[in-house]
């Protein structure tokens, strides 16, 4: 049976792992290669690097991080943040990433999903989606780190992503992100029901039981968290033990 995946995410700026809730409060806290290696030892099923670098120089640094990580971490690596063109996808995969995560750029230019899937295969195109509730069981898609409401219906958008060839959806709820009260179960359930590609739950994990909760209440394929693991409040292995003890199939 296919195991549910636990995915730690590392926010990287200029080649350093950073922590912080907003851009002003960011602190550099470590070497991404070392952090990825540590997560690998804890049993992470995949590792996501999210590049929050704005500059072009920073992109090159990010690719070096991927290259160096791929030499010592032998689980799938996903890289997101700032990927805008087919060339960006190509060079990220060539550096050793197994998947790329496209977000704002895919909303602005949905053809990026199709071109990426056609050239490199659906399996390496993950679409990251930031969404926020606008009513009962209704959500809209935001871009630029949750700052701009595109007035685009979430369910319509994820269906379109699937039709264009996306291999996976990473669904981040702006409503629960940072609140640490658990994943956004209604939003997650609605998206899982709308598509037949894997869906990763993101945004809101604050305590041990939140991961198992997402798996028990929805058919999501994976759950992702950043700060919870960054701040060493929980380890990946603790989360996996908790899921296992509740009968969830975990590696």
């Amino acid at each position: 049976m296919l195991a549910k995946r636990i995915i730690p995410c590392l926010d990287v700026r200029d080649g350093k792992v950073v922590k912080g809730v907003n851009f002003e409060g960011i602190k550099e806290v470590g070497d991404p290669v070392e952090c990825a290696y540590e997560y690998n030892l804890q049993g992470a099923d995949e590792i996501v690097f999210y590049d929050i670098t704005a500059s072009h120089e920073g992109r090159g640094v990010m690719l070096d991080v991927v290259r160096n990580t791929a030499k010592k971490v032998f689980v799938p690596l996903t890289v997101g943040g700032g990927i805008a063109t087919v060339d960006d996808i190509r060079e990220t995969l060539r550096a050793g990433a197994d998947k790329v995560s496209v977000n704002s750029q895919a909303v602005k230019n949905p053809q990026l999903i199709k071109d990426g899937a056609d050239i490199f295969g659906s399996q390496c195109i993950c679409v990251g989606v930031d969404a926020k509730a606008v009513g009962e069981n209704k959500w809209t898609v935001y871009i630029n780190g949750g700052r701009i409401d595109m007035k685009l219906d979430l369910i319509e958008w994820v269906k379109k992503c699937e039709a264009l060839g996306a291999g996976e959806i990473c669904l981040n709820s702006i409503d629960t992100d940072g609140v640490r009260g658990g994943f956004d179960i209604p939003m997650l359930r609605a998206v899982v029901d709308a598509v037949s590609i894997p869906v990763i739950a993101s945004g809101g994990a604050g305590k041990l039981g939140d991961f198992a909760d997402a798996f028990l209440k929805t058919d999501c394929s994976a759950a992702l968290a950043a700060s919870l693991f960054h701040f060493k409040e929980l380890t990946v292995s603790q989360v996996k033990d908790d899921c296992r003890s509740k009968g969830i199939n975990i590696r």
């Binding site: 296919l2 195991a3 099923d45 659906s122 399996q123 291999g167 996976e168 590609i197 394929s221 590696r251």
Partner: peptide
Amino acid sequence: GLVIPHMGWNK
């Protein structure tokens, strides 16, 4: 009813 691709860790 299967999610496709078959993506992840299987035994």
